[in-house]
């Protein structure tokens, strides 16, 4: 399995993603520069976190026009598996590969903390049987407030496209149980309808080593890998 990690000039979780995929057995990764026009022989594409082009206009707004994004779009249309983490998720929404948009956190501040995620039944790879019911994974973003209109939300729910929700409780007495950004329906991650494009605000690559807040990122990365191996987007 060959993984391509896309590097935009302001990507800053690219190395983290690279190392995390190397930690999960069998996933040697390769960096692909945003000015490249081809993904080569990649079988899995990762859009890492960061501030692609400074994100002064809107997060991911300029990145979607990078030459490599044409290749990523084609790859996804052919059923290739794409994972967008944080800024990568924002880029996928801007590029129209995932529905909805990510706007400013409700608290109007950047938030870096480890949150509890509830795993939803989102298809053959992302489900409670594979991942467990709850995951502790760090978030770090200023614009992770997922937004979609009512119709779109109904469609996400109906088609099992919600991957994770923040395990938020009304009062959030325990700070792990907060929704860090105010996203609609506590959404933390989604997939496209076809089931081959995944986007999430939390950073699974920051939850793989013994000293990380948890190692719950490993099953997430494995789920993506499994999706890619099985040709998830083909014929689902």
């Amino acid at each position: 399995m060959k993984t391509a990690v896309i590097q935009f000039p302001g990507s800053n979780c690219d190395q983290d993603a690279f190392h995390a995929f190397a930690t999960v057995p069998g996933l040697p990764a390769r960096m692909v520069w945003h000015k490249d026009e081809s993904l080569g022989d990649a079988e899995l594409v990762v859009l890492p976190g960061g501030f692609s082009f400074g994100d002064y206009l809107r997060c991911g707004a300029i990145a979607r026009f990078s030459p490599i994004m044409r290749a990523v779009t084609g790859f996804a249309e052919n059923g290739g598996v794409v994972l967008g983490i944080c800024n990568g998720f924002q880029v996928l929404c801007e590029a129209g590969l995932l529905p909805g948009a990510l706007i400013r956190n409700e608290c109007l501040e950047f938030r870096c903390t480890t949150v509890e995620l509830r795993v939803e039944e989102a298809g053959p790879f992302f489900n409670r049987e594979k991942l467990g019911e709850r995951l502790m994974i760090p978030v770090a973003h200023g614009e992770g407030n997922y937004l979609i209109d009512g119709e779109g939300l109904d469609s996400l729910r109906k088609n099992g496209q919600i991957l994770f929700r923040y395990a938020a409780r009304g009062s959030a007495a325990d700070r792990r149980l907060e929704n860090p950004n105010g996203s609609v329906d506590n959404i933390a991650g989604i997939r496209n309808r076809r089931g081959n494009v995944f986007g999430m605000m939390p950073h699974p690559e920051r939850a793989v080593e013994s000293f990380h807040p948890s190692r719950d990122g490993i099953p997430v990365l494995k789920a993506v890998l499994e999706a890619a191996k099985s040709g998830a987007g083909v014929g689902v």
Partner: peptide, 10 residues
């Protein structure tokens, strides 16, 4: 119009 605007609310 109907989109949440956290900055406007603030």
């Amino acid at each position: 119009k109907n989109v949440l605007d956290p900055q406007g609310a603030a």
